[in-house]
Simulated assay, not measured.
Amino acid sequence: MRIGELSRRTRVPTRLLRYYEEQRLLAPAREENGYRHFEDGDVYRVQQIRGLLDSGLTTEIIRRILPYLTEPGEIHPRPERLNPETVALLWDEADRIKQRVDCLNRNREAILGYLAAVQVDRRRTPPPEDGPATG
Rank of each mutant, 00 (worst) to 15 (best):
D121P: 13
V12I: 14
E109Y: 00
V12A: 09
T10D: 13
K98P: 03
R30N: 05
L57Q: 00
G4H: 10
R30C: 04
N107Y: 04
L16H: 07
E60M: 05
K98R: 15
I49P: 12
L104D: 07
R63G: 01
I111N: 05
Y35L: 12
Y44Q: 05
C103F: 08
A117W: 01
D54H: 13
D130M: 08
E129V: 07
Q23H: 01
R78Y: 02
Y68S: 11
S7M: 04
R36L: 06
I3T: 14
G41Q: 07
R122L: 04
E60I: 08
T58D: 08
D92M: 15
N33M: 10
D121H: 14
Q99T: 09
R106K: 13
E32R: 02
P13Y: 00
V118Y: 05
D95R: 15
L6W: 05
D92W: 12
L26R: 00
D102N: 13
G131H: 05
I75A: 15
L57Y: 09
E109F: 00
I97R: 14
H37G: 09
D121M: 11
R108S: 00
L25C: 07
R100Q: 12
F38D: 04
I3F: 15
I111Y: 09
P67K: 06
R18E: 00
R9M: 14
L90P: 00
R11I: 08
Y35Q: 12
T59M: 09
A110F: 14
G4N: 13
A133F: 09
L6E: 10
E31W: 10
P13T: 02
I61E: 00
S55E: 07
D95C: 13
A29E: 03
R15W: 06
T10C: 12
L6S: 13
A88N: 15
